[in-house]
């Protein structure tokens, strides 16, 4: 067989019944009945795929990579563009490492509440006030929540409002119930 993507081994190994051979015989039989005269091609791919050559490995890797990047980028289209103020808020979120304690979309630290849909629960005035005059965090006696200045706090809340508009396929679950009630 020409050195194509798949090629057969010609291994004159001494005759020995191994699990491999038993499986091969069984599979051959099944495939013969299922696919008729084409069964041999399928077995070639399934069993002798081990002989996949370097070239095919590289080719498949490159193709999968390109396709994967493309569909990820297509999938990340937003329902509406990010407003400028929300973008500024995103950088406040990042500069202060909020993600160490809170999650967005369920990704982040576990010390505090998920904030993906917080703006549906609390008013923005409350949130801004919370960030500018942070309270002591339970169960601490002195340690307060990190503080932000007024402008940063407003941008941040704007960002959280934007995040709330991104559809998350029904996650988190109890939110759905809360809205249904």
């Amino acid at each position: 067989m020409a050195p194509g993507i798949f090629s057969l081994t010609e291994s004159p190994a001494p005759f020995k019944i191994t699990h491999y051979k038993i499986c091969r015989t069984l599979l051959t039989t099944v495939y013969y009945y299922a696919f008729g005269e084409y069964y041999h091609d399928i077995i070639l791919i399934a069993l002798e795929g081990s002989l996949l050559k370097l070239r095919s490995f590289l080719l498949l890797s490159i193709l999968s990579w390109i396709l994967f990047v493309a569909i990820t980028l297509i999938s990340s289209r937003l329902p509406s563009p990010v407003p400028e103020q929300a973008e500024a808020g995103k950088s406040v979120w990042q500069r202060n490492n909020c993600v160490s304690c809170h999650t967005l979309f369920g990704h982040g630290g576990y010390a505090a509440e998920d904030l993906t849909h917080i703006t549906a629960k609390e008013t923005s005035a409350y949130l801004v006030n919370y960030l500018v005059h942070p309270p002591v965090m339970r169960p601490n006696n002195y340690t307060r929540h990190p503080a932000l200045n007024e402008a940063d706090a407003e941008n941040l809340v704007n960002y959280l409002e934007f995040v709330h508009t991104i559809p998350t396929l029904g996650w988190p679950p109890q939110q759905e119930e809360a809205e249904a009630n």
């Binding site: 002989l51 996949l52 095919s56 498949l60 890797s61 996650w171």
Partner: peptide
């Protein structure tokens, strides 16, 4: 090589399990 191809293809599209709710 078969193992490597499966790791690449499975790994790439398996990233989907982190894309569920974002």
């Amino acid at each position: 090589y078969l193992e490597a191809v499966l790791a690449v293809v499975g790994g790439l599209y398996g990233t989907g399990h982190h894309y569920y709710w974002i």
